[in-house]
Amino acid sequence: MSDILLEEIPLPAPAGRSHVLRRFVRHRLAVLGVVLIALLGIGAAGAPWLAPHDPDEIAISERYAPPFTAGRVLGADDLGRDVFSRLLYAGRISLAVGVAAMLVTLIVGFAIGAFAAYYGGWIDTLLMRLTDVMLCFPSVFLLLFVAAFVTPGLGSIALMIGLTCWMEIARIVHAQILALKSADFIAAAELAGAPAWRIVLRQILPNTLAPILVAATLNTANAILLESYISFLGYGIQPPQASWGNMLTNAQSDFQVDAWLAFFPGLAITLAVASFNFIGDALRDALDPRLRDA
């Protein structure tokens, strides 16, 4: 019996994930970010129940009501619409655009990066040069160019942002797969006869998840910002529907008198973008395998 000997296995708690959590929690700002995103998310999701007024309800008598007057927490805008309610509803749009655009960048970026790296050869060259070319254009201009031809709407804006911001993900995925392609466990899967899509999804994707997750978080922040830009410039979400970006546009003309009209949507954008960025940075540290044993 000596030839096959059971080794003593001390069974440590299958720990991987809690380590990641512990390192994440060490980033105070990221934890604050999670809390803020949660609050913004709850506010947006629960807008129909939380909003004290209809966001589009016009009350001429209460135009420019400052905060804490006329029963309005954050005051009313130039048409007497309730700013707090509009902020909540705008959050629905802005966050939804951010998340949807991020998903688009993920799908497009992963598909292009993975396809290029896995097949190699001229496909690789073609797709990665395309990526480089796309990276050469500042995405805001690309976006404005496209926006001129497309009817603005939540879906189309998310799609447009996604289609102009997938390059970073593609590059990350490409690099990761190139590094993994020569790993023996990939050879083992090929030997077993696993088709390419299965190798990519089962063997490669889980190993590239960490950097992708980080990039996705940062992309969400970027997408929220981009939506604000184009809405601010008038190509995005169209009034009367509120987004944080077009609320800013609205406030622009009255900025010298009623600065608080610009302050609250600006604050919402800043908080959301900063929070996603903090979370992304913390994830980068927490998921770094080199720090696994720390």
């Binding site: 000596s2 030839d3 080794e7 003593e8 296995i9």
Partner: peptide
């Protein structure tokens, strides 16, 4: 001959 072995490993025992 069967090789005599040291059971276990440095890492786990």
């Amino acid at each position: 001959d069967e090789l005599p072995i040291i059971p276990g490993s440095v890492a786990t025992a």
